[in-house]
Design a binder for these strands. Structure first.
Lengths: 245, 245
DNA sequence: CGGAGCGTTGAAAGCCCTCAACGTTTGTGG
DNA sequence: CCACAAACGTTGAGGGCTTTCAACGCTCCG
């Protein structure tokens, strides 16, 4: 059982052929550990390898002129953080750790090999980038159509579902090592308003976000506030989408 | 010169091998025409083919509880509108035409063949979905960090750049067959406020949006208002990203 | 020519931001 | 182990941007 096990966990982990499994494991060049709050890649950088998050938490963001930033994605263990860099070559945003994180580095040359020799596996990597896009779409919806409570609730719901999928929810509690400022940057809100919003959610028994943890008090209500439907995470179909190439 | 020529135009159109060209052309099952304002696919639908927009304008969107919708993407000729459906199988959003549109239908079975036999071509299709994701990210930024004028300006800049790339800008004018309501749905604004915002942009000579057309008066100023940088469209690297598989 | 959809404008209300101050937690070095 | 500083969290007041509500003009098409 190698590090790619994380990539498959919670994604259905259907049968990999021995060949495919080996190709995925061998694609990993090395494991690296980055400290908390560290930028891994900058917008415009040419990238020659992609990173699979094994342990920790990471994010992607764009900077605005006024110094604030907009989070684009939040990453949990098992996520390919910048697989899109394989084909696009240059990143259009920054990538950073939230807490100390262990990541597997995958050289793009290895992915070329997978593209040539393992079309099913290639399709799975493609799929991981499409899930990113699906989450992006839901973030657009969140920012465009929901009010502060809805945005925060939607964000919590998403992370909850994804943490659940990788077995990192204990009871109704899961880790969310973000400051209120971070949550604001994800939801297009100021940290002050995030504070007020979290207080309301807490007072109403919907969710308690504090000290890097979330305790979900009323998941159904939280989902309703955030107009959340986990469909877009495609948790049911697994990494292969039940089809063959 | 077949219909896929559109797909390649403005994307750099590097050399395709004769085989790859043929595979792409043969992947097209048929051409269909849909009337204006018609939903092509609904959220949750299982899809077995993808659509390449040849002529017209299309969009993708999510519905909110209150009846309003949030646009997720705007599509111009040459865009693969739902290539992600190939791997995800089921759509997480609706797809519709804006005006009457001619589209090429590509059966997913044909893409399976391309995955097996034409890794370079497969990588180009993958790439097209990654460009979608890059645009999604920029939409997140737009909604999360910009005010009304910034959002509208950013949106206009994006469409301008993409229309330019496919040779559909004449002077400083290009087609944008959207109502103010549509623009609001793209930018997370009400149509009333879009109206006021467009008036201001018009009065200041920055851009004139009316009667389904945009006349860009001051592109530099427009880009500054929208904090727009076309990097994320990857117009320079072309469909192949200058690498080989 | 009539109607429906779209565009335009004004007034008032609401949500979120800004600014400011203070309390709390965390981490670090003496 | 304590002290201190820095970052984070909390709360209040006031202001601004956008929404809501409403009315009316315009355009286009049947």
């Amino acid at each position: 059982m190698g590090v790619t096990d994380d990539f498959l966990r919670g994604r259905g982990r259907q049968v990999l052929t021995a060949d495919e499994w080996a190709a995925l494991e061998q694609a990993i060049d090395r494991i690296e550990t980055f400290p908390a709050r560290t930028a891994i890649t900058r917008r415009g950088d040419r990238v020659r390898e992609s990173t699979l998050l094994i342990e920790g938490a990471m994010c992607r963001y764009l900077d605005a002129r006024d110094g604030y930033r907009q989070l684009l994605a939040y990453h949990v263990p098992g996520d390919f953080v910048d697989m899109h860099g394989y084909t696009l070559q240059r990143l259009d945003h920054d990538v950073a750790t939230i807490v100390e994180s262990r990541v597997a580095m995958v050289a793009h040359g290895r992915i070329d090999q997978i593209m040539r020799d393992h079309p099913r596996l290639a399709k799975m990597l493609w799929r991981s980038t499409l899930l990113d896009a699906a989450m992006h779409r839901e973030w657009i919806f969140r920012l465009g159509r929901l009010d502060a409570a809805g945005r925060v609730a939607h964000f919590i719901c998403e992370v909850h579902a994804r943490m659940e999928a990788i077995g990192r929810v204990t009871g109704d509690v899961f880790a969310l090592p973000l400051t209120q400022q971070d949550i604001g940057e994800a939801c297009g809100l100021t940290s002050v308003h995030v504070n007020r919003t979290l207080r309301r959610l807490r007072e109403e028994g919907v969710a308690d976000v504090a000290r890097g943890e979330v305790r979900v008090g009323d998941a159904a209500r939280l989902a309703r506030i955030g107009e959340f439907d986990a469909d877009y995470l495609y948790l049911d179909t697994g990494p292969w989408g039940k089809i063959d190439v």
